[in-house]
């Protein structure tokens, strides 16, 4: 009997099944290596660099690699910067809640109340389409909407509801919150709709036949099943809002300073070490938020 074997001697102890498994694994790792390498070099390494530079010595226009905690001390003793942390967390919390409150009923309508698949898809597409507009243009679009001579004030004055234009609408924390909610709410609507769409309508009908009120059905069936969607949406919204600076820069009239704005302005004045400190603080906050969320939901399973 002739044997066709190309195995190297060291492999002879392995069965064909193990060899195949080894080969498949090696192939998978080979395919994955370029991507992981890319991420390691261009994402992980820069992030390490941020942490490292946060301990460098800042002079007026340059940084030196002499290690010091001076930037950290300055950051943590400055009420302006600690205030930025507080502002970031406050804006994040409000926007997160706002996206859930504003988005959930819409998701409920599209995911559960619209039975027609075509209409359902059309509505979802309608929610997503604004994304094909430049993000910065969408932000700037709030200015003619909210300004003292903007659309809202114009309409309210026409209707005689107000006599003086409302000035708090633009260049305030309010305009930042409205802008962010509008931009990010879709990331909440999408995942929740997806989860609600998975609910078998017959389950709800059966519950209704058994005499359950909508309140009961919502509490017992709809809410629990949609929670993973809320969590996934919350992760999306959180990471985006926490890293924000453009909306605040263009709509707050410098009244709202997020950590992102601190980083941008520090880099603008070449205070690299200081920007790095703000970066590390931001990283810690985001990591904490994501870690918390991932404890509550397995992202890999939900996608």
């Amino acid at each position: 009997m002739t044997t066709l074997s190309t195995d190297t001697p060291s492999d002879t102890s392995l069965s064909p099944a193990q060899l195949r498994e080894k080969k498949d694994r090696r192939r998978a790792i080979t395919l994955l290596t370029p991507g992981l390498l890319w991420m390691a070099l261009f994402m992980v390494l820069p992030m390490i660099m941020v942490v490292y530079v946060s301990f460098w010595t800042q002079t007026t226009f340059t940084v030196e690699s002499t290690l010091t905690t001076a930037s950290w001390e300055r950051f943590l003793s400055s009420s302006t910067y600690l205030g930025a942390i507080w502002t970031t967390l406050r804006i994040w919390a409000i926007v997160l809640i706002a996206t859930i409150v504003v988005g959930y009923p819409v998701a409920l309508f599209i995911g559960l109340f619209v039975r027609n698949k075509t209409l359902q898809t059309a509505l979802l597409v309608a929610c997503v389409i604004p994304f094909w507009t430049s993000f910065l243009i969408r932000v700037i679009a709030w200015r003619p909407m909210l300004g003292t001579e903007g659309a809202i004030n114009a309409i309210l004055m026409q209707l005689g509801i107000i006599n003086e234009p409302l000035t708090f609408l633009l260049f305030s924390e309010f305009s930042v919150l409205v802008g962010m909610t509008q931009i990010y709410v879709v990331f909440m609507v999408g995942p929740i709709t997806f989860m609600l769409g998975r609910i078998d309508p017959s389950v709800i009908e059966a519950a209704r036949d058994l005499g359950a009120s909508f309140g009961t059905i919502f509490r017992r069936i709809i809410l629990p099943l949609s929670l993973p969607g809320v969590m996934v949406g919350a992760i999306f919204v959180s990471v985006m809002v926490l890293g924000e600076f453009a909306t605040a820069a263009s709509l707050s009239g410098r009244k709202v300073n997020l950590l992102g704005n601190i980083i941008v302005s520090q880099v603008g004045s070449l205070k690299w070490a200081f920007a790095a400190v703000a970066g590390v603080v931001l990283t810690i906050i985001i990591t904490a938020v994501i870690a918390l969320a991932l404890r509550l939901v397995d992202l890999r399973k939900e996608m």
Binding site: P46, M240, F245
Partner: peptide, 15 residues
């Protein structure tokens, strides 16, 4: 897709 752009941007600039 999670890491804020401003952070990796800063890191890449430093690097």
């Amino acid at each position: 897709m999670m890491v804020p752009g401003v952070l990796v941007g800063l890191g890449m600039a430093l690097l």
